[in-house]
Structure formats: structure tokens, C-alpha cells
């Protein structure tokens, strides 16, 4: 909503600047618009974030419990169906081992601890998202805050975005997901048969000034922040520590960074 309001003001500004205000005094109409708009409360954080980013601190994920708590926190509030077969599976956030998460940087001498380490994976809210480029309807698009989001009512279910995403971040509703939702959250939309879905960056929580659900449940294992803000924790980590990202060779500029070993730059 804040984006619409901003666009509205921008356009109104352009109109006045062009002198199309007619008999209205330029200043007058500007004031009136400003006061009308202020009736709506601006969400505290909605305007501030410019570059959604997440750091996964691998040192904080020791037990299965650490991982499951994070995954369930998302599944619960986003009405993620628990399908009974892997074919129809819907996944927003899940985990895999090193070899498969970083399929292109295998290392046969890796020790067992590292090999078995569970890596949290989700949509990377890429800077140059291949999914957005491919989508023929604009149902998948990038917001000003960096979140790559979806309009479930516009999606035609062509699955071109699934072919385009190099990270396997997208799921398709091969059947009606509603009967498979365990804990129904009436405050978040459910999806229908025949549309694609994925992690939406917890836009609904950011609007209320909250952290993404996974970050909140992670006890510091997932650090969320704004990479365009040099004082943010994510910026400090990404700029001074050694982090890795999945499949950077495709130029999509993924925004999920993995802090492996938790140490300083080698």
C-alpha cells in the first residue's frame, strides 16, 4: 500500500510541476494531497528497507531442532500445505546438505561434519531474478525493497519461472493445497490449484516492523537486514566476513549469504 501511496504522490507531484493544476494554487494542491495521505498510517519499516538480504550463520545450526523450529515457524504462518508425496511438495524454506546445496563446488575430501551440515535454503530474492525475466504475465515481480514477490491471482501456472530459477526455489500447486494445511492462518492468503508459489520474504511482517518469521525463530542463526544500510548487521557481516552464496555464476546475485565456519576472513 505504501508503494501505491508513494506512486500517487509522485504522479500528483508531476501533475503540479507541469502546471496542470489549472486554477488551483500549486502549493495549495500539494498541501491538500499531503494532508489527505497522512490519514493513512505509514507502516514503520515499509519504506526503509531497500535491499532485502539474509545471512545464514552456520555456527548456530547445531541440532535438528534448530532447523525444524525455523522451518515450522514459516510453514505455520504462511499456510504451507504438507503434501503426502514429494511430487506435489510445496516448499518455502527447507534444508539440504553441502554437496547438494552447493552442487557446483563439491569437495570429495570434505570431512563428515561439514558434509552433513544442514544448509537452510529458500528463495534468494535475487538482484537480477531469472524468474521475473521469464514470467510472461508479471505475476512474479521485484519490489522496491528487494523482495521478489508474486501475485497469485495473476499467475497462469505456465511454470516458466520454475524452469528459469537456478535454485529450485519455486513450487507449483499440482492440486488444491487447502485440505493439506495443518495450522490455518486466516491472516495470510492461501493459494489455489494451478499457481506457482515460493518464499515471499515475509513482506507482511516487515510492514509491521517485525523480522521475517524464520529469522525471529532462529536464535540469531538467520540474520535479516538491509544491505544498502552500511550500519546494518548484514552489511557488516557480508563486507568483512567470508561468506558464500549459491550459484553466483548465473549472475542473478542471490541475497542469501552463508557464513560458514563463522570465522573472520581467511
Amino acid at each position: 500500500m505504501s508503494i501505491n501511496r508513494r506512486q500517487f504522490l509522485k504522479r500528483a507531484g508531476a501533475v503540479t510541476a507541469l502546471g496542470l493544476g489549472g486554477s488551483f494554487a500549486t502549493i495549495g494542491i500539494g498541501d491538500r494531497l499531503a494532508s489527505a495521505a497522512s490519514e493513512y498510517e505509514e507502516a514503520p519499516n515499509a519504506d526503509k528497507i531497500k535491499h532485502w538480504a539474509m545471512v545464514v550463520d552456520m555456527s548456530k545450526f547445531k541440532t535438528e531442532e534448530d532447523i525444524n523450529r525455523v522451518i515450522q515457524s514459516c510453514d505455520k504462518i504462511h499456510n504451507i500445505p504438507q503434501m503426502d508425496n514429494s511430487k506435489d511438495e510445496i516448499k518455502w524454506i527447507w534444508y539440504d546438505d553441502y554437496e547438494h546445496t552447493f552442487a557446483d563446488s563439491e569437495n570429495e575430501y570434505l570431512d563428515e561434519t561439514m558434509k552433513k551440515m544442514p544448509f537452510i535454503v529458500m528463495c534468494n530474492h535475487c538482484e537480477n531474478p531469472a524468474c521475473v525475466r521469464a514470467c510472461p504475465t508479471g505475476a512474479t515481480f521485484k519490489r522496491e525493497d528487494g523482495i521478489v514477490t508474486m501475485d497469485f491471482h495473476r499467475c497462469i501456472g505456465c511454470r516458466f519461472c520454475m524452469g528459469a530459477c537456478p535454485f529450485g526455489a519455486r513450487s507449483f500447486n499440482f492440486r488444491d493445497p487447502r485440505p493439506f494445511i495443518k495450522d490455518f492462518n486466516p491472516n495470510f492468503p492461501t493459494r489455489t490449484q494451478g499457481v506457482v508459489e515460493k518464499c515471499l520474504g515475509c513482506y507482511e511482517r516487515l510492514e509491521n516492523g517485525e523480522q521475517p518469521a524464520c529469522a525471529e525463530a532462529s536464535n540469531g542463526g538467520l540474520i535479516f537486514g538491509d544491505l544498502s544500510d552500511q550500519n546494518s548487521e548484514v552489511y557488516k557481516i557480508v563486507s568483512t566476513k567470508f561468506t558464500i552464496r549459491r550459484k553466483t555464476q548465473f549472475g542473478t546475485q542471490p541475497n542469501v549469504y552463508y557464513l560458514v565456519g563463522g570465522g573472520d576472513r581467511a
Binding site: 514429494s86 511430487k87 506435489d88 511438495e89 516448499k91 501456472g157 511454470r159 520454475m162 524452469g163 529450485g168 513450487s171 507449483f172 500447486n173 499440482f174 492440486r175 488444491d176 490449484q193 494451478g194
Partner: peptide
């Protein structure tokens, strides 16, 4: 029913 009636999956979409 949906495209679940086909052999397609999350991986072979």
C-alpha cells in the same frame, strides 16, 4: 484435480 494427475513434479516441471 490439477496437474497432479500428470507425471510432472516440482523437479520435472
Amino acid at each position: 484435480y490439477g496437474l497432479g494427475l500428470t507425471g510432472m513434479s516440482r523437479d520435472v516441471s
